[in-house]
Simulated assay, not measured.
Amino acid sequence: MTVTAGPDTALDAAAVPLRWVGPLRISGNVTTTETEVPLATYESPLWPSVGRGAKISRLTEDGIRATLVDERMTRSVLVEAADAGAAYEAARAVHARMDELRVVTRRSSRFAELLALRHEVTGPLLFLRFEFSTGDASGHNMATLAADALLAHLLATVPGISYGSISANYCTDKKATAVNGILGRGKNVIAEILVPRQMVAERLHTTAAAIARLNTHKNLVGTLLAGGIRSANAHFANMLLAFYLATGQDAANIVEGSQGITLVEDRDGDLYFSCTLPNLIVGSVGNGKGLDFVDANLRRLGCQEDRPVGDNARRLAVLAAATVLCGELSLLAAQTNPGELMKAHTRFERTPLERPGPERHNGDSDAH
């Protein structure tokens, strides 16, 4: 993988090691598939760790079940009024114009559709949060373009308001907040797997009870004590960043993307393991997708096929969620055994990284 910022950029300074891991077996309401996934990272233990989870997915009957439950991109704008009463009346007037606002949205893009509108009034300030469908794009620019047109229309048609900002932080973009998990931003995907008792013992070297106990104590109680915001997981960000870099995504979106919940249950010795990712912001088209290595990776993932609008991005989202589950499962299993985590890091991180290439990990390693 090589990213070049300009003619004076040194290739060595712009290269991130990338390997294909898997394949992962996935089923669900978006796709049923078995595919390898690309991970671009300097943290070399991540490849065998995700590989171990991928191997588990291939050994179970249904593999990883990935369910997409919602999708939308948001942009909030700010307008100002004389006082709270005027701001509230303006909010009512805006909601009454939803039909015309949908028309204005469609004029801004072939793919943008206005799904919903929410508001908050704080003193004389009126925050408007527009929610859009954006096809196969992650939708940042599409949503902002539509919001710009909507804001101009409202300033011209709603009395008593003036311009505040085209971006009002109630979206919320690339910040750790609660609103995205509550109202939705990006793709909301739940990945889950049921691992038989014998496989937990033989492949993960632990028990369902031990992983469930660790998840409660570490991910739930530990995160609560740390003051986490709608998030209780071990390391979603690791897998997401590696996947985002390999597929041309805006990497800063791991801030909200890594806000998610790992839920584990001991079901009579079998292990139920799920990762809920409510803020996955991914796209199969748009900025960053024109690079040769990104285009090749997306094609290999089956995310540039001739499908109905939005389906390629949905496939990409469930592949990302399944990848997160593989790495999360492997890490938590490792952390139930004293010394295993550090042993894996020492083994892999003290070996110099090879130059980026087509190598892959087949998931047979027992490293975390």
Rank of each mutant, 00 (worst) to 15 (best):
A147Q: 03
D99L: 08
A146R: 03
R97D: 07
L128Q: 11
V94C: 01
P124I: 03
T122G: 09
A86H: 10
D136A: 06
A149H: 09
N141G: 15
S109E: 04
A116V: 04
L114M: 09
L117P: 08
T105P: 02
E89S: 13
G164C: 08
V121L: 04
L155H: 09
T144R: 11
H153N: 00
A82D: 15
A152H: 14
T122V: 14
L126Q: 08
R110A: 10
E100T: 11
A82E: 15
S109A: 03
A84I: 04
Y163C: 05
P159W: 01
H140Q: 14
S108F: 01
A146C: 11
T157C: 08
L126D: 04
V158Y: 02
A143R: 00
A143Q: 06
N141I: 09
H140R: 12
V121W: 08
P159A: 04
P124K: 10
S109Q: 01
T157H: 15
R106D: 03
V79R: 05
S109D: 01
S133M: 07
G135V: 00
S165G: 08
D136N: 08
L128Y: 12
R106W: 04
Y163F: 15
Y163K: 14
E120Y: 13
H119V: 09
T157L: 00
L151Q: 15
A152M: 05
G164I: 02
S162D: 12
V103N: 07
E80L: 14
E100K: 12
G123V: 07
S138R: 09
R118F: 06
T105V: 01
R102D: 02
P159D: 07
A91I: 07
A156G: 12
A112P: 01
D99C: 05
A96L: 04
T134H: 07
G85R: 06
G123S: 00
R106Y: 02
F127C: 06
Y88P: 05
E131D: 12
L78V: 02
R97M: 08
H153I: 04
L145V: 13
R118Y: 11
L115W: 11
L155T: 10
E89D: 14
H119Q: 14
V121P: 02
A96K: 13
F111P: 02
R102M: 07
L126G: 03
S165E: 13
A93G: 07
R97G: 05
H140M: 11
A96V: 01
T105Q: 03
A112H: 05
T144H: 11
F127A: 05
I166K: 14
A91E: 11
H95L: 15
D99S: 13
L151G: 09
V104W: 00
F130P: 06
S167P: 03
A82H: 13
M98E: 12
A137T: 09
S165N: 14
R110E: 09
P159R: 08
S133P: 06
R107N: 10
A147Y: 04
E120R: 15
L101C: 00
